[in-house]
Design a protein around this nucleic acid. Structure first.
Lengths: 115, 115
DNA sequence: CTTTAATATACGCTTGTCCATATATTCGGA
DNA sequence: TCCGAATATATGGACAAGCGTATATTAAAG
């Protein structure tokens, strides 16, 4: 996946998807429930956007009990990896991404944390 | 412009716009008529896509007689400039961008060339 | 086996995007 | 001033994207 550049950029062309992606770029791996809390969006909305990113090849998911964890895909083409690196370098300091990070701190990890 | 990342990526999320952009990244500045020839698309279609890229802040235009030349904007935010640099580094060797480059050679410059 | 939490999907709707075609604009030259 | 070339815009329709709401799935717990 993510071999067609225009499909890759389509996945990035939604504010909610971009905010979720920046969180995943800085935090490494997050369950859906924490993303819902950090971005303050409805659960179905977050689920659909994460599915779109996964289907575009940008994210991978991992099921652990009732939780599903999403992370940024590792095997991206060079131009895609460089694009995400640019976002990870610049966006987390800016609004609204910075505020999402802060709000994430207040969302408890419940259980299914890291590996 | 191009301050909202999702708007920037929306501009990149169309195959025709990406192809035109890659040509401009490698050639520096081109008139609409040569882009029409290189991509083999209709003139109104190219004009609309170039306008979209310009309104998103990715391109600048310069009128010279009957010709309008487009070039990549110089004053982009860092994350945007790095994204375009990644595209310029990897895409021109691949299909269909490589073929567009080759086809561009066969489109005469008519008149309004460089500066 | 029922319940509850986490996540995903289906549905109907509104809005936006893209296209082809036709027409308008702008400029240089005769 | 009239014409042709280059470019832009308007129009209408087809199709996809997003949304909120409701419901289905999956798994852990009891």
């Amino acid at each position: 996946m993510a071999y067609d550049p225009s499909a890759f950029f389509s996945a990035l062309s939604d504010p909610t998807r971009l905010r979720a992606l920046v969180l995943l770029l800085t935090e490494g791996e997050l369950c859906v429930c924490r993303l819902v809390g950090a971005l303050a969006v409805s659960q179905p909305k977050m689920s659909r956007h994460l599915a779109a990113l996964r289907e575009a090849g940008l994210l991978r998911d991992r099921r652990q009990g009732q939780w599903v964890h999403y992370r940024v895909a590792e095997d991206l083409p060079a131009w895609a990896a460089r694009t995400l690196a640019a976002l990870a370098a610049d966006l987390p300091d800016q609004a609204p991404y910075r505020d999402d990070l802060l709000r994430l701190r207040d969302v408890p990890e419940k259980n299914g944390a890291a590996a």
